[in-house]
């Protein structure tokens, strides 16, 4: 399947450098310290944050910083073919490690020694870019929980075909079989399952764009790598703008309810 049509549009009508629609909401659970629901196109993710709280496992307590404990899980009905186990396979464990690594860099862990923050992500519907969507949802959930971070982490997945990077691949795009190189941002599941190079990037936009996570699947020529990374970072910046708007709206609503502008 060709990711790009002859006019340069993708299967779902997007341009290569366009991310999918993002809908999100903070504070969906009452019992977790922080929670968020995020939709990136048809990929739907729920994230919950517990903490910071006293570390429960004595063996893992860190004396000088906070312990970040994550879990990535996919509901068995999230994919079009039923998944046999929600977690515990190698891929889920790998993605869990990616989440931990990303947030270890973003959360100001040195401020809370000997405590623990739990971040749990559940993918309800998988249409490509699962890791990126989980990072975005977890970022929102951490903000909802009031956990101090260096900034809002935003992530995007980028593929490449036909001389152009394609951002935010969906599942169909991820599965397309494309030999050539065009960066396409925000792949969906169809786009993701292709044998094309896929790069997931998590950034901390701000003064300097810090890259917190860089993960490449498949292979790409050294010359094209920079273009893909560049496109991915731009895509993440677009995601960052969406997340920031959502956070500002949420904080305004809550602070107004609490009547903070009067106090």
């Amino acid at each position: 399947m060709d990711l790009l049509s002859e006019h340069g549009y993708r299967q779902d009508g997007r341009k290569p450098n366009q991310i999918r629609n993002i809908n999100c909401r903070l504070g969906v659970y009452s019992q977790a310290d922080g929670s968020a629901y995020l939709e990136q196109g048809n990929t739907k993710v729920l994230a919950a944050v517990y903490g910071p709280h006293e570390a429960k496992q004595r063996s893992r307590i860190l004396e000088d910083q906070c312990l970040i404990n994550c879990q990535y899980s996919m509901a068995t009905f999230s994919t079009s073919e039923r998944k046999y186990r929600p977690r515990g396979d190698r891929k889920s464990t790998e993605l869990t490690r990616h989440l931990e690594k990303t947030f270890n860099s973003a959360v100001l862990t040195t401020m809370y020694p000997r405590s623990q923050i739990d971040i749990f992500c559940e993918v309800l519907q998988s249409d490509g870019g699962n890791l990126a969507a989980c990072i975005n949802a977890a970022s929102l959930a951490l903000v909802d929980a009031g956990v101090p971070m260096r900034g809002i982490v935003s992530a995007a997945i980028c593929g490449a075909t036909d001389g152009q990077p394609c951002i935010d691949l969906n599942a169909a795009e991820e599965s397309a079989n494309i030999p050539r190189l065009t960066p396409c941002i925000d792949l969906n599941a169809a786009e993701e399952s292709a044998n094309i190079p896929r790069l997931t990037v998590a950034t901390l936009p701000g003064g300097d764009d810090d890259l917190l996570l860089l993960e490449l699947d498949h292979r790409v020529h050294h010359d094209q790598l920079e273009a893909i990374i560049d496109a991915a970072v731009k895509g993440a910046a677009q995601v960052h703008a969406c997340l920031q708007t959502a956070i500002r709206k949420h904080v305004s609503e809550v602070a107004t309810c609490l009547q903070w502008e009067n106090s």
Partner: peptide
């Protein structure tokens, strides 16, 4: 820089950011 999402409060020289929800 702010580390949480919230409202900036300044008391003399002390600057804090108060989040809407936290522990």
């Amino acid at each position: 820089h702010a580390s949480v999402a919230g409202v900036v409060e300044q008391v003399n020289k002390l600057v804090c950011v108060k989040p809407v929800k936290s522990r």
